[in-house]
């Protein structure tokens, strides 16, 4: 599979087939085939947009919840993770190394919603031994993009 096509799409999902073709030297048909294949195999999972909701003063709360799991007989991490990631509040879920086991990113409307999710849903799970909730206060950088305060550095318009 052509990684360059994927790298280009990962940076900007809006580029057209024709543009990718010009950037890589592949034909439009080759680019289309690569993308279709990647979509089919779920190498490309989906196309999304990075939005800075803070700019709209949108009511939206994000939190990272550390979840410590009580290992249980016959129940692996995968099964427990599934119990958790099926909740729509759980935006992303990772098994991690270190003092806790699952990192759960939550997006919700209010802090109250997050608390409710933690106390009523997560903590209620038998295998969850403990949780620590970190509310996000201010985003600086998201998906590789610095969100605010980046001064545009200008080059000299003409140099030899």
């Amino acid at each position: 599979m052509n990684r360059e096509v994927l790298e280009i799409l990962e940076k900007d999902a809006k580029v057209t087939l024709k543009q990718i073709s010009a950037m890589t030297g592949l034909s439009v048909a080759q680019v289309r085939k690569t993308i279709e294949e990647a979509e089919k195999n779920r190498v490309i999972v989906k196309y999304k947009t990075v939005i800075n909701w803070d700019k709209l003063e949108d009511e939206r709360v994000r939190a990272l919840i550390e979840v410590k799991i009580q290992p249980q007989k016959d129940v692996g991490f995968d099964a427990i993770a599934e119990r958790i990631y099926r909740f729509s509040e759980a935006h992303s879920v990772y098994l991690v190394s270190g003092p806790y086991d699952l990192a759960v990113f939550v997006v919700a409307k209010t802090e109250h919603d997050v608390s409710k999710f933690v106390s009523e849903k997560l903590a209620a799970l038998e295998s969850v031994q403990g949780t620590v909730t970190h509310f996000f206060l201010k985003p600086y950088k998201e998906d590789g993009e610095v969100l605010e305060g980046q001064e545009k550095v200008r080059r000299q318009p003409l140099t030899l």
């Binding site: 550095v153 000299q156 318009p157 003409l158 140099t159 030899l160």
Partner: peptide
């Protein structure tokens, strides 16, 4: 103006 007249990278 779009300048293609530069002689240096646009990366920092």
């Amino acid at each position: 103006v779009i300048s293609l007249g530069v002689g240096e990278p646009d990366f920092a």
